[in-house]
């Protein structure tokens, strides 16, 4: 319940945060909403020596119209997403998925940037951004770069961000009127998904899987099958292709594969694919 000791640095700007990361190297961790990091620290499963608090960077907290995209500041809270009128119009799936994260208290604190940077395969927002074909913007000592969501998740709780980079923005395409579905399968409302499936139908169909391997995943076999003219049911049969789900208290590997197929079919049907 009590984290190990650490030093605390409050960043007044993105630049300060990046500088602090550079200074403290591997010892340091960014603190955004704290709703992934602090639970780990309380159980002493994470013991960073320095926390760099970016929670006050309000200039990175926004949901903006950016032409054919929506730009979301990394420090935007789940609650901001779930109540956003702009998202309701332009990207209702993201709003809906944010609403399914954790519980209201978690959504009042947790940020989309933290959720993506944490790169937890069991998290909801990464899959949504993947299915949407989003882009992430990272800022480091040498300036900004864009990373496609499909390139972002590199391993279990690992992302393409360098140690001294700050995720600043998440961009998702506007998809008004597109068919979509998010199937979250869990046992209690507050829990992470045992398996989840995000599907968006906007010309082509993007499908992403939650908790089907070490990273959030694109269901490429399904997408290919659909592109090749397969029915939703046929395509869904390939949902677990290339995945490496783990076994835990809630599901065996085999059951996860089964759920992925069933939920993908339901998602595709709901999305009208």
């Amino acid at each position: 319940m009590i984290p190990a000791k650490f030093d605390y640095v409050r960043a007044g700007s993105a630049a300060e945060a990046i500088a602090a990361l550079g200074e403290h190297g591997d010892e340091a961790k960014l603190l955004a909403g704290g709703h992934s990091l602090l639970p780990l620290m309380k159980l002493r499963l994470a013991t960073p020596a320095v926390l760099v608090d970016v929670g006050r960077l309000d200039d990175l907290r926004y949901i903006r119209d950016a032409g054919d995209q929506i730009a979301i500041g990394a420090l935007t809270r789940h609650h901001d997403l779930e109540t956003s009128d702009l998202l309701a119009e332009q990207c209702p799936m993201l709003r809906h998925v944010a609403h399914l994260v954790g519980d209201p208290q978690v959504r009042h604190r947790g940020t989309i940037g933290g959720s993506l940077a944490h790169a937890d395969p069991a998290s909801d927002l990464p899959a949504a951004v993947l299915a949407l074909g989003g882009t992430l913007v990272a800022r480091g000592p040498d300036g900004e770069r864009e990373i496609a969501a499909t390139e972002f998740f590199t391993g279990f709780l690992e992302s393409a961000l360098a140690g001294d980079e700050l995720l600043t923005e998440i961009r998702v395409p506007k998809v008004p009127g597109a068919g979509w579905s998010y199937q979250k399968f869990n046992r209690r409302a507050q829990d992470w998904a045992i398996v989840g499936v995000a599907a968006v139908r906007n010309g082509t169909t993007g499908v992403a899987l939650v908790n089907m391997g070490t990273t959030p995943l694109r269901a490429t076999a399904v997408e290919e099958a659909l592109a090749g003219g397969a029915s939703a049911a046929e395509a869904a049969e390939r949902a677990d292709e290339g995945t490496e789900p783990t076994a835990d208290l809630n599901a065996s590997e085999e059951y996860r594969r089964h759920l992925a197929r069933v939920l993908t079919r339901r998602a595709l049907e709901e999305a009208g694919a």
Binding site: R187, R188, A189, Q190, L249
Partner: peptide, 9 residues
Amino acid sequence: DYLVPSAAE
């Protein structure tokens, strides 16, 4: 991990 139910369940 120990699933004490909430009002939602």
